[in-house]
């Protein structure tokens, strides 16, 4: 990064669509990273719960949306290109370092999940943050995760069985993830910690 863009990135006040709306301030980077790290820490606890409901079989995936949350939440807060992917990768990287049971495959999961959500927000030119687009991004993220899990974990299963998992993941991505993410962001906003970020 050159001195010029670095300075403008740090002082850029154009949070709402000015010329350097896409440039990341230091605060954007650190807040997005911290969201990823906080979710990574929460994932350690959630991972224990996830194992505890392994006996539910495919229905377990009704909670799958939780794994996709850092991407959606960070994108909703930072609203800059790459926020979804960056936060999800930080969360996945932390989980890998903490010794996730899925090992470095967590990084691959995080990448496809974050990238899929990112793609949808990019289609909205990072200007559209309505409920439908959040649902769409959640669905895309879950779809990418589903394909990944199919190839990696359910490679020997019949399509019907994998499709049932997909249905549960889709329900999670439509009914739980967008509402949960939006409510989380608005709770943070009313707590007053999101001053300086676009509304």
């Amino acid at each position: 990064m050159t001195i010029g863009t670095g300075t403008s990135a740090n002082t850029g006040t154009s949070a709402n669509g000015g010329p350097d709306a896409a440039a990341w301030r230091t605060r954007d980077i650190v807040v997005a990273a911290v969201i990823g790290v906080a979710f990574g820490v929460a994932f350690v606890a959630f991972g224990v719960a996830w194992r505890a409901i392994e006996f539910l079989g495919p229905a377990q995936n009704i909670l799958y949306g939780a794994w996709l949350m850092p991407a959606i939440v960070a994108a909703l807060i930072i609203r800059k290109p790459g926020a979804a992917l960056f936060a999800e990768m930080v969360a996945a990287g932390l989980a890998t370092l903490l010794g996730s049971q899925w090992g470095p495959d967590t990084l691959l999961s995080g990448f496809v999940q974050g990238a899929a959500a990112e793609l949808v927000f990019a289609f909205g030119m990072y200007r559209r943050w309505s409920f439908p687009i959040v649902v769409l991004a959640s669905l895309a993220s879950a779809a990418a995760a589903w394909v990944h899990d199919w190839v990696v974990w359910y490679a020997a299963s019949s399509f019907e069985a994998v499709a049932v998992i997909g249905v549960f993941m889709a329900i999670s991505a439509i009914a739980i993830l967008p509402v949960g993410s939006i409510r989380l962001v608005s709770a943070l906003r009313s707590a007053g910690v999101l001053g300086g970020f676009p509304d």
Binding site: M1, I3, G6, T7, A9, N10, R25, T26, R27, I29, V30, V31, A33, V34, I35, V37, A38, V41, A42, L184, A187, L188, A191, V193, L194
Partner: peptide, 29 residues
């Protein structure tokens, strides 16, 4: 709901961190 509290504290920490990093010219050269 614990997540809300965790993130509030985390983002406050991030703000201070970013300020300190900017003060040291993080990423400006």
């Amino acid at each position: 709901r614990l997540l809300v509290g965790l993130l509030v504290l985390a983002i406050r920490h991030a703000d201070r961190l970013a300020l300190a990093m900017d003060a040291r010219g993080f990423g400006t050269g």
